[in-house]
Design a protein around this nucleic acid. Structure first.
Length: 658
DNA sequence: CACGAGGAAG
């Protein structure tokens, strides 16, 4: 709004020509600590000049505003406020520093109101040191000043510093307000290097209850979110359950908590509950829908997803970009790539995330070339790739074995797009080379990294070693991984698998022992299938399903047919010390096979079977599913942790490269 | 005078 405040005179003499104003520029700066805007009455010229600067700021014409500033003898606090805001908006740090200097010289350097504005500006222009200096130099630290610095440091990921300052604030007896709590809670999960300050977060939760903020919906929602990010779903549930006032944000936070922590089923359940209770204050909105769609995607719950899509259309949320991207991702992960493409084609406005969604969709389905085409089309159409674009397209190359293309894209990142590879990009490259059995090159990439490799990179190497049975690289990678993430059971299992593959049974035993002594458990294989809007989940050695005997019988028969065609089950991948017969029966009990058998029995003949699995598909399941697709003339789609396998007529879309 | 909560691509 460009209208002037009613308290200010509307009719003013037109601003004098510039030459008349210059006289004020040479005045000595005021050094008094009291604010001269209140001590010296402004002349009509100054008032009008203030207003001119202000309106230029509002129009976004920072350049002219600044040139007027140099002629203005008595800028007001409001003028400085708008100037600072304008500097943030124009992303101009040098101008911001100039305004800062100007206001200091005019005696505003101890104004707490402008101090918070300065801190905000420096925060937005990523100059945390200057923000900190403003804080250090101001004597009258109102809670606003503290909050501004907390906010700045939290946004920049300096959680530890926030908590340290918060402690100091408490020691000085300064009382937090509701804003302080939201910032310091966020600080606990925004610490450097992704570490979290769990103990501190719980303590602050205690402070909040002691100071009577347990009914503040903003604060308590932040508490829920904090526990969600810690992965403490139980705590989040309890806090959420005890909240008196819940609104759409609190519900969304709890749904997101489930969706993010591998509890997609619970996320959908809570969404249902939310719909049942729906009132004006908690009607689901676009943010809610994003998490709900993520949950559908995680479960491959296509029917659920379609229902949600219908709801989104009815609520008119279908033109909100994050919703559309989530829809595309959901359809892609449910095996409906064509629908994702269709949605994309019909979009009026796209952003880089829309493109990335499509690229990764093609990537997980194994269409590497198509993914690269879309990536190029995105650039041609004028959208600059983001770091995630490269993760998506490199991942696509990796799934399709497009090594040279991937290497070229990786090289182009910094050269052509000014994006410096991060750990994830390196992990993609290690994966790309490793899967193609170029493990020495993959190791060389790690060697040459300018940043710390981190568990993701070593994990990629170890995974590739599992595929190609390379013990030497595996030992090096697992050494690193056992240091970096000693509690990740998957790494131990991978190494044991690799040893077993090489028939190094003593080593297998050692690794299994290590797993036990550290109190870790192998993540059990789980597969699920949606039949008539219901999701059926299977564990290996499943006894719960009422049809279990029928499933086993069917699988046995199929296995017999396979053997007649000359198939020998790869029993070496079973890590237990058993005879061949028992090993075969363990293989036959894998959750993915149970889910396929369940699909064969409970869906109609022409219908495709869609399965989702929480781990990488094992060799035997892969072979058997290929066989089943031919033997029963069924299309079978399996999404494993990495990608899709589209089985049809005895062939898999991954061309046995996964 | 002012500052807040949940969400997209991997």
């Amino acid at each position: 709004m460009l209208t002037l405040r009613p308290s200010q005179p509307i009719s003013l003499p037109t601003p004098p020509p510039v030459s008349r104003l210059n006289r004020s520029a040479n005045r000595p700066p005021s050094c008094s600590l009291t604010f001269n805007h209140s001590t010296s009455p402004a002349t009509a010229t100054e008032v009008s000049n203030n207003q001119l600067i202000q309106s230029l700021c509002k129009k976004g014409d920072l350049r002219r505003a600044l040139s007027l500033l140099s002629q203005e003898s008595n800028p007001s606090q409001r003028t400085y406020e708008l100037l600072l805001l304008s500097c943030s908006r124009n992303r101009s740090l040098p101008n911001g520093i100039a305004v800062h200097r100007h206001l200091s010289l005019n005696g505003f350097d101890q104004d707490p109101f402008l101090a918070t504005k300065l801190i905000n500006m420096y925060s937005e222009l990523d100059d945390l040191q200057s923000a900190r200096r403003v804080f250090d130099e101001i004597h009258d630290r109102t809670i606003f000043v503290w909050n501004a610095l907390f906010r700045a440091l939290t946004l920049a990921g300096y959680g530890e510093q926030v908590i340290e300052l918060y402690k100091r604030m408490n020691e000085r007896g300064i009382l937090s307000d509701r804003f302080t709590y939201t910032y310091v809670l966020k600080a606990c999960v925004a610490a450097e290097g992704g570490t979290v300050l769990f103990k501190e977060g719980k303590e602050i939760h205690g402070h909040i209850l002691r100071h009577g903020y347990e009914d503040n919906v903003h604060v308590m929602t932040t508490v829920v979110d904090m526990y969600a990010r810690y992965g403490c779903v139980g705590y989040a549930e309890r806090v959420f359950g005890e909240m008196h006032d819940k609104n759409v944000v609190s519900w969304s936070a709890m749904i997101a908590c489930y969706a993010k922590n591998g509890m997609a089923y619970e996320a959908l359940e809570l969404f249902r509950e939310m719909m049942a209770e729906e009132c004006a204050d908690n009607a689901p909105n676009s943010v809610t829908m994003v998490s709900v769609l993520q949950a559908c995607a995680a479960l491959s719950a296509l029917e659920q997803g379609r229902l949600i899509h219908g709801y989104i259309l009815r609520r008119g949320l279908d033109s909100i970009l994050p919703v559309v991207s989530s829809l595309m991702t959901m359809y892609g992960k449910c095996g409906k790539l064509d629908v994702a493409q269709h949605i994309f084609d019909r979009m009026d406005v796209r952003d880089v995330v829309s493109w990335n969604s499509l690229i990764s969709g093609y990537g997980i389905h194994g269409f590497g070339e198509k993914a690269i085409d879309i990536f190029r089309e995105m650039i041609r159409s004028g959208t600059s790739p983001s770091p995630v674009s490269f993760v998506s397209v490199l991942g696509a190359c990796s799934h399709a074995g497009l090594v040279e293309e991937g290497k070229a894209l990786f090289d182009s990142m910094a050269k052509e797009h000014g994006i410096h590879p991060n750990v994830e990009h390196y992990a993609c490259m290690v994966d790309l080379l490793g899967r193609a059995n170029r493990l020495d090159e993959a190791a060389a990439i790690i060697q040459g990294m300018r940043i710390e490799p981190g568990p993701m990179v070593w994990g990629s190497l170890l995974g590739s070693c599992r595929i190609h049975g390379n013990v030497q690289h595996a030992e090096r990678a697992s050494d690193k991984l056992f240091q970096l993430e000693p509690k990740n059971a998957g790494n131990y299992v991978l190494l044991a698998d690799i040893y077993a593959d090489a028939r190094m049974w003593d080593e297998v035993k050692t690794v299994k022992k290590l797993l036990e002594t550290r109190g870790l458990q192998k993540v059990p294989g789980r597969s699920w299938i949606e039949v008539k809007r219901k999701i059926y989940s299977f564990l290996s050695v499943d006894e719960i399903n009422p049809q279990i005997e029928q499933l086993h019988a069917l699988l046995l028969e199929l296995a017999r047919e396979m053997k007649e065609e000359g198939y020998t089950p790869p029993t070496r991948i079973v890590l237990y010390d058993l005879d061949v017969q028992e090993k075969e029966s363990i293989l036959l009990g894998h959750s993915e096979k149970l889910a396929v058998a369940f699909g064969l029995i409970n869906t109609s003949k022409g219908e495709a079977i869609r399965i989702t699995k929480n781990l990488r598909l094992c060799e035997d399941c892969h072979s058997m599913t290929k066989f089943i697709s031919k033997f029963t003339s069924r299309e079978i789609l399996v999404r494993d942790i990495n990608r899709f396998h589209h089985f049809r007529d005895g062939v898999c879309s991954c061309r046995d490269y996964w």
